[in-house]
Amino acid sequence: MKQLNGLNITETRPQRSDQCLQNSELVSALMDGALDGDALARALDVLAEDDSADGTWDTYHLVGQAMRFEGESLQAHDPAFVSRLREKLAKETPELIVASPLPIRAEGQFGLKKSAANDPWWRRVAGLASVAVVGVLAWQGMGWMGASRPAETTLAQQSVASAQMDAPQALVTADGAASVMIRDPQLDALLAAHRQVGGANALQMPTGFLRNATFNEDKR
């Protein structure tokens, strides 16, 4: 901003390439909303008088549009430029692709949870099953995280899911000679649901309740 305010475009008459560069910076600053007063007036004059500044204005908008709306068809003066830009963006920003879920072993002591990660319902469960009782809620399909607050849902899922990675849970021992650790949110949810409304016995009070409130499958 200070640099831009220090520019004196009309008086110094710099070389053409310098002029273009300065105009580009001016247009860029204009697009960013960083100009006001005299600088703003000068930028508008430049845009009105200089065809190349006008082109820069279009290009910058196009770049912004391409970065914001990847995949959508872009309106531009120069289709060739658009395709070149797309190619370049495609080459330079591979990290933007959302990381796909880790390949997960279904079984094994150190296996993470197997999840059908494409299924939003299971994504929800994955973040919840660490606590059995909440697993029940997810299992019954309650949208407790609230469809009305998708942004919060996503954040909550991410934070809980990341915690999940550190602390895989639901250890179930398969019966048979060799015991195998299995993790499956579906199994957890059923076990939790059984504890919640099952356990209808004479020992339920108080020992069964204490047992269920104390016991957790997750291992840390």
Binding site: G141, G143, G199, A200
Partner: peptide, 23 residues
């Protein structure tokens, strides 16, 4: 189940002999 997953409602029936229970 919630409205977004109508097929996901499930039935749970509990049987007990007084000490043990089965869902």
């Amino acid at each position: 189940a919630d409205a977004s997953a109508p097929g996901r409602s499930a039935l749970q029936c509990v049987y007990s002999d007084g000490l043990a229970s089965v869902s």
